[in-house]
Computed example of a mutant assay.
Amino acid sequence: MKRRTAREKAFQALFQINNSDIDTDEAIQHVVEEPVVDAFLHDLVHGVMNHRSEIDDRISSNLENWSFNRLPKVEKTVLRMAAYEMKYKEDVPAQVAINEAVELAKIFGEEDSGKFVNGVLSKMV
């Protein structure tokens, strides 16, 4: 599975987890067709969930004129994934994580989601 596809699937799984009472592995199985889960996808979902409070604190400290709790669900999920990649995935350059997050925000979010995500993540570099 390509990393872009893995990121889309990870977004979908994390969105499910954050918006319903579903187990992490069950959410992953809902979004993949193959019986074997891609390692990058698995790491993204579990990594975000394992470091969520630290990631949320990092995002919160880089918000201007927004509180973390007021963030739309799509943007919050995308920001969490990118913040995880930027901090914990040494093989992913920060700019790649930002670009991929912006693309996810454009696909799943509102018209200005990509710009918002880019602004927040750029402050984290």
Rank of each mutant, 00 (worst) to 15 (best):
W66M: 15
W66V: 11
M86D: 00
E75P: 05
E100P: 07
V92T: 11
E103F: 11
L79H: 01
K106V: 10
F68I: 15
A105T: 08
A101G: 00
Y88M: 05
N69F: 13
R70Q: 15
W66G: 05
A83D: 06
N69D: 15
V92P: 00
L63F: 08
D112N: 14
L104I: 10
K89A: 05
E110W: 13
N99A: 08
M81N: 02
T77W: 08
I98T: 03
E103A: 12
E100D: 14
V120H: 05
P93F: 00
V102C: 06
P72C: 12
K89W: 01
S113N: 11
A83Y: 03
K73N: 15
E90F: 09
L71S: 10
V92K: 05
A97M: 10
P93R: 03
V78I: 13
L79F: 07
A105K: 08
F68P: 02
M86P: 00
L79D: 02
L79A: 02
F108M: 13
Y88K: 08
E90L: 14
A101Q: 04
A101T: 05
P93M: 06
R80V: 09
A97G: 09
W66A: 12
N118G: 13
V102D: 00
R70S: 14
E85W: 04
K76P: 05
K87I: 14
L71T: 10
A82T: 06
T77N: 04
Y84G: 00
I107K: 15
V78C: 08
V92C: 02
E75G: 12
L71K: 12
E90W: 07
F116W: 07
D112T: 14
K89D: 01
L104A: 04
M81P: 00
R80K: 15
A97I: 09
K115S: 13
P72D: 12
F116Y: 11
A101N: 01
P72I: 15
A82E: 02
V96C: 01
T77C: 07
E103G: 14
A82R: 09
V78S: 06
T77S: 02
Y84L: 07
L63S: 03
E90C: 06
F68A: 12
K76D: 03
R80W: 11
F68L: 15
A97H: 05
A101V: 03
N69I: 15
G109W: 07
P93S: 08
A82H: 06
L71A: 06
R70V: 12
N69K: 14
E85T: 12
Y84C: 04
Y84H: 06
Y88G: 02
E111N: 10
N118M: 09
A82N: 07
V120F: 03
S67P: 03
T77H: 03
G114D: 05
A105C: 06
E85M: 14
I98A: 00
N69P: 05
N65A: 14
M86K: 01
V92S: 01
Y88S: 01
K87Y: 08
K87S: 09
